[in-house]
Amino acid sequence: MKKIAKLLGMGVGAYAVLFAVFFFDLDGKFLFYVFEPFVKKHYDNMERKDMTQMPYDMNKYPDYKYDEV
């Protein structure tokens, strides 16, 4: 019985905490002030392939015209 009451109490507590996160937009604030700046920094510093160095070989593949269709 005690165990059930404890579990129930924990459930109610977790629900209340989640409601506080929801109501005070704590998820939004975390994502805006912490998560987004962190990932942005990561993406800004990522090494990226210089795509403009790729040759544009227009004759590499056939024309795929299928005039017989």
């Binding site: 998820d27 939004g28 994502l31 805006f32 998560f35 987004e36 990932v39 942005k40 990561h42 993406y43």
Partner: peptide, 20 residues
């Protein structure tokens, strides 16, 4: 994918604000 592509990490995680 999230670690590799900007559009996923920067965009889709705050999706619930889009609902709001």
């Amino acid at each position: 994918g999230l670690w590799r592509y900007r559009w996923i990490g920067q965009t889709y995680v705050p999706v619930l604000h889009w609902f709001d």
